[in-house]
Simulated assay, not measured.
Amino acid sequence: MSNILDYETVALVDDDDAIEIIDQTLLPGKTEMIRLHTAQEIWDAIYLLQVRGAPAIGVTAGFGIYLLMKHSKAENYNEFIGELKEKSDYLNSSRPTAVNLSWALKRMQNHIFEFCNIKALEDGSVCLDSAKEYDLKGMICEMRDESERIKAEDIDVCRRIGEYGLTLIKDGYGLLTHCNAGQLATCKYGTATAPMYLAHEKGMNIKVYCDETRPLLQGARLTAYELHSAGIDTTLLCDNMSASLMKSGAINAIFVGCDRVAANGDAANKIGTSVVATVAKRYNIPFYVCAPTSTIDINTPTGEEINIEQRKPEEVTEMWYKERMAPEGIKVYNPAFDVTDNELIAGIVTEYGVLGAPYKEAIADLFNKIQKK
């Protein structure tokens, strides 16, 4: 079996004006690299989960907005900024829950504003009084460099999350994870899987259990695939088997990723995560959320304000089945994510360390420290 770590999840192919990704909808049966050239192709790839995972989506957004602006014909700042906003808004509409998407697009815009001495005003407008002389070529070069920095930082952040997460693991541990917060969701190591990969590198004896993660089966198709191909002792289970497994004593800790963390520590992750957290609390198993600070949204007070994406009913009624497995006309409830209450979380593992309760204060302190650097 080929090692999935040998492939780049997201890569910029500048000479072809393209983003190259692994088409994750075809895994594990087929590993196929595809190239995205147009705004529609990038939007579709994010929406259809050909590229997925909050960090990988953020990297794709950074590359995407650079490529879409690369051949801009804008002749002045007003035209350039208007085009940048239009294209950013379009890409941002592809998935509403993963904060890295809007974060990366906003970062790309802010970098250009800083490079050009453009001041963003509170009402959303801009002040050009102190702006540099208009330099389209220079701005495009800056966008390319910034998009590459987003990717490089993602790799570094995941490695650091792995190192902090590793301090929570002992030799012989059984670990449970839900959905895919692995390399396929990032550019390397993953978030929730980063401690597992580092433990494996160090020769630690760990066993990893993967929930299949209905209805899109990211745990079965992606996490189980990448961990197994990397040589980690991996076991797959149906989502509704996790309580039985936890009760058996096989699980010592749980690591999951997330798509958005609210300012109070509530965490939105793939649907079913809150069930795992609730059961873990019952059996006194520590439940850790692995979250790059780019995933923490300090402007969202609690999980109640997180916009939860609703998916098509066909994902439940007929996807993966040879024949439809539900009656015609049946109503379907299919949210892509749920929110885990902060009181169920034993720690939030970031690239700066492991945050503990009370999370509102811990998150605020962390961001204050980052801003002072």
Score class of each variant (00 low, 15 high):
2 S>Y: 08
5 L>R: 14
6 D>T: 06
9 T>M: 03
12 L>H: 00
13 V>T: 05
22 I>T: 00
22 I>H: 01
26 L>A: 11
29 G>W: 15
30 K>F: 11
30 K>W: 09
34 I>A: 15
36 L>W: 04
40 Q>M: 12
47 Y>E: 09
55 P>Y: 08
64 G>H: 05
69 M>H: 07
69 M>W: 02
71 H>M: 05
72 S>Q: 03
75 E>T: 15
80 F>Y: 13
90 Y>C: 04
90 Y>R: 07
90 Y>N: 07
92 N>G: 02
92 N>F: 04
102 S>W: 01
102 S>L: 04
105 L>C: 04
106 K>C: 02
108 M>G: 04
111 H>C: 12
113 F>C: 05
115 F>D: 08
117 N>D: 12
122 E>S: 13
126 V>F: 12
132 K>I: 04
133 E>P: 07
135 D>A: 00
139 M>H: 09
141 C>T: 13
148 E>K: 10
151 K>D: 03
153 E>V: 01
161 I>F: 06
163 E>W: 07
168 L>G: 05
174 G>H: 04
177 T>L: 06
180 N>S: 13
186 T>A: 12
190 G>M: 10
195 P>G: 02
199 A>K: 08
205 N>C: 13
209 Y>D: 07
212 E>T: 04
225 Y>I: 03
228 H>Q: 14
229 S>A: 10
233 D>K: 06
234 T>C: 12
235 T>L: 14
239 D>M: 12
240 N>S: 14
241 M>Y: 01
241 M>R: 01
243 A>N: 03
250 A>V: 15
251 I>C: 06
251 I>K: 08
258 C>M: 03
263 A>P: 00
263 A>F: 00
265 G>E: 01
266 D>W: 07
268 A>M: 02
269 N>T: 07
287 F>T: 06
289 V>S: 07
298 I>K: 01
300 T>L: 02
300 T>Q: 00
304 E>S: 13
306 I>P: 01
307 N>V: 14
314 E>H: 08
315 E>S: 03
319 M>I: 14
320 W>E: 15
322 K>I: 10
323 E>P: 05
328 E>M: 08
333 Y>V: 05
335 P>G: 08
337 F>H: 04
339 V>Y: 00
342 N>D: 15
345 I>Y: 09
346 A>N: 14
346 A>R: 05
352 Y>W: 10
355 L>A: 03
361 E>K: 13
364 A>V: 11
